[in-house]
């Protein structure tokens, strides 16, 4: 039992960077923009978070810096795609190249250093409850922030007026514009939020999960986060399901190996992508349901006629 709790604890924490990056990208895509530069923004967040945390001695400052770095990178993407109307797919790929390079350059003096990881919160009494205590009430604050963000985004998109506008912009930017909403401003705001989330996701890797800096340490997680958004069919709650499917499969197979179960890890790691395609097909083949989920204007350029 104790072992099961430990394993589950590991599974809860492992996909947190994916949750951050994916929930941010979800908001971006809901506004009708496809930013493929997630990997670049995550790695910038990772080095910003690590370097500032190390130099200032404050993890909070590090996380804030990571959010800022991600948002700035997303801002560049926003100016190019929203103001200068460059193609989103190409610009996102360029952002990844740029981000990986800049992060490596920035991090040159930080290789081989290490910070103390974020302390876990032990919620008084609650964390002592057997089983549920360690599973639910004994993580670091960013875990709770990640879950709160998912809930917050779900509430924002479905219950607030601003969320409605954001969705309207993603559904039909011409109509939204005609009603008088500022499409570009809405999308910029979504992009900045998405960039900040990706930055924090990267910083979670470099300051909490493995508190050090090495080049390419995000190792493709930005791309997985993109898959998770699709898997989630653009619903915030399902981002958690997706993140735990992708991240959880990895941890579970590591444990399975430890128990001596022979499994082919390579085939297993294809599974989440295939499941994602299946989910996409299921939600897409019914046109009525697809309009509930997929933003109709995804990756389409918007030019304000006025």
């Amino acid at each position: 039992m104790e072992l099961a709790v430990l394993i589950l604890q590991g599974i809860i924490v492992a996909p947190i960077p994916l949750v951050f990056a994916a929930i941010g990208e979800l908001v971006v895509e809901r506004s009708g923009v496809l930013n493929l530069g997630l990997e670049g923004m995550m790695i910038l967040g990772a080095i910003a978070g690590f370097s500032v945390a190390l130099d200032s001695g404050s993890l909070v400052a590090g996380i804030a810096a990571a959010a800022l770095a991600g948002a700035i990178a997303a801002g560049i993407f926003g100016i190019l795609t929203q103001v200068l109307l460059s193609n989103q797919v190409a610009t996102g790929l360029a952002l990844t190249i740029f981000g990986l390079g800049l992060a490596a350059l920035w991090g040159q003096g930080y290789s081989g250093e290490s910070t103390a990881p974020l302390a876990k919160i032990h919620i008084f009494l609650l964390s002592d409850i057997p089983i549920a205590g360690p599973l639910l009430f004994a993580h670091d604050p960013l875990v709770y922030l990640a879950f709160a963000l998912v809930a917050g985004v779900a509430w924002f998109l479905s219950k607030t007026r601003a969320g409605l506008i954001l969705r309207a912009v993603g559904e039909n930017h011409d109509a939204a514009h005609a009603i008088g909403y500022n499409v570009v401003a809405v999308r910029m705001a979504a992009l900045l939020f998405g960039g900040a989330c990706a930055g924090v996701g990267g910083a979670y890797l470099s300051t909490v999960q493995t508190p050090f800096w090495v080049e390419n340490m995000t190792a493709g997680r930005g791309w997985i986060a993109l898959a998770i958004v699709v898997f989630a069919s653009w619903r915030p709650g399902r981002v958690l399901v997706g993140a735990y499917l992708f991240g959880g499969v990895t941890v579970a197979q590591l444990h399975a190996q430890g128990f001596g179960i022979d499994i082919d890890a390579q085939y297993l790691s294809m599974l989440p992508y295939l499941v994602t395609i299946l989910v996409l097909v299921l939600i897409s083949h019914n046109k009525a349901r697809v309009s509930l989920n997929a933003p109709a204007c995804l990756a389409k350029p918007f030019f304000a006629p006025s």
Binding site: G10, L205, Q209, M217, T250, L254
Partner: peptide
């Protein structure tokens, strides 16, 4: 690093 850390924890 992330995966190596997960393996270590497991």
């Amino acid at each position: 690093p992330g995966k190596e850390a997960d393996a270590a924890r497991a």
